[in-house]
């Protein structure tokens, strides 16, 4: 088991190094450098930047070094939390990131808080008796909710809950501080898809387990059905959903882009989107790096959870 985990940690480190090198290489090109130079030197555009000014800037920034040297310098900065300065807002990127990530974390917290119990319960109920009416109802609804793209969910929810019923505001900018009512629409938009997806996965894992031979053994031992489900089935059926829940941390980073933009919620996704539209390179680079870190960490966690939950891997 230790061997497996160590192997995965090393792989993760390798991936992080590769990704950071890739990101650095992409944003190290002249095209992007000039943009930063223009911003820092206070010029109005790449066209007005004189060549000598640009060269002087490059030397002053130490960018005339060899690529590996520049990469190491950059990496050193990154590790010490220096992610550059936003061109658009003229603030340290790390400050921006801190604010936006904490807003997104609030959203993510509520997503997981509701998603985990609801989807696991519904999935287990559906998978327990494959083909039962409950199973069919849950499955059909789940297919439906996973088929609605989030822009459509967001639009439909706005129409119904905000425009029709007027229960919640249409936007979630939270100008007057945090308000749970404003959080509701983005939260629901994410939940509708996520719960559907997890329910489907849990259901199929549960259905597989329930048709396995060891469940037959347990039933034919004369154990009560409740005990068979709770003790014999769940332990095996929840392995996959648990690892998937951890992986959903990555999925969430994608989904918040759409949801936050639609509802004007000031989180990580919104920040990335604004940066992309403005061409705020330092922010894009830093945000991508952070996103990859979170994603890789969630993959690592999910792999470790899989090993821990699986006696075959845990006890060799």
């Amino acid at each position: 088991m230790r061997h497996l985990v160590i192997r995965r940690v090393i792989q993760t480190l390798l991936i992080m190094l590769t990704v950071s090198a890739l990101l650095f290489a992409v944003f190290d090109s002249d095209q992007f450098r000039k943009k930063i130079a223009v911003a820092e030197l206070g010029n109005f555009g790449a066209a007005t930047l004189s060549d000598s000014d640009y060269q002087a800037w490059i030397v002053s920034k130490g960018l005339d070094q060899s690529f590996p040297a520049r990469y190491v310098t950059w990496l050193n900065h990154v590790v010490h939390g220096d992610l550059g300065v936003s061109i658009e807002k003229d603030v340290a990127v790390s400050t921006l990131l801190k604010e936006s990530l904490s807003s997104t974390a609030v959203l993510a917290f509520y997503v997981f808080l509701i998603m985990i119990p609801v989807s696991l319960m519904l999935g287990v109920l559906a998978g327990m008796k494959e083909g039962s009416i409950l199973d069919r109802v849950i499955s059909v609804i789940a297919v439906f909710t996973t088929s609605i793209p989030q822009i459509a969910t967001a639009a439909l929810l706005t129409v119904v809950l905000a425009l029709g019923l007027r229960w919640v505001p249409t936007k979630s900018a939270m100008i007057d501080g945090f308000s749970f009512r404003e959080l509701l629409l983005p939260l629901l938009t994410i939940l509708i898809y996520e719960i559907g997806y997890l329910v489907r996965m849990t259901r199929s894992a549960m259905a597989d387990v329930m048709s396995s031979q060891y469940i037959r053994t347990a039933l034919l031992k004369g154990l009560p059905y409740r005990q068979v489900v709770l003790k014999h089935a769940l332990r095996n059926a929840l392995v996959v959903p648990v690892t998937l829940i951890l992986l959903e941390l990555t999925g969430l980073l994608s989904q918040v882009v759409v949801v936050e933009v639609f509802f004007q919620y000031h989180g990580f996704g919104r920040m990335l989107f604004d940066a992309a539209n403005f061409g705020d390179i330092q922010v894009i680079q830093a945000a991508t790096l952070v996103a990859v870190c979170v994603a890789v960490a969630s993959q690592l966690l999910s792999d470790i959870a899989y090993v821990l939950l699986n006696p075959r891997l845990r006890v060799a």
């Binding site: 396995s212 031979q213 060891y214 037959r216 053994t217 347990a218 039933l219 034919l220 031992k221 004369g222 154990l223 009560p224 003790k231 014999h232 332990r235 095996n236 939950l309 699986n310 006696p311 075959r312």
Partner: peptide, 23 residues
């Protein structure tokens, strides 16, 4: 349930598959 396991018990072809892997 009383009969199963208590009065009649069964032994299966594939022992590996008939035992719960995580207990």
């Amino acid at each position: 349930r009383q009969v199963r396991g208590a009065d009649i018990a069964m032994i299966y072809q594939e022992p590996m598959a008939s035992l719960n892997p995580s207990l």
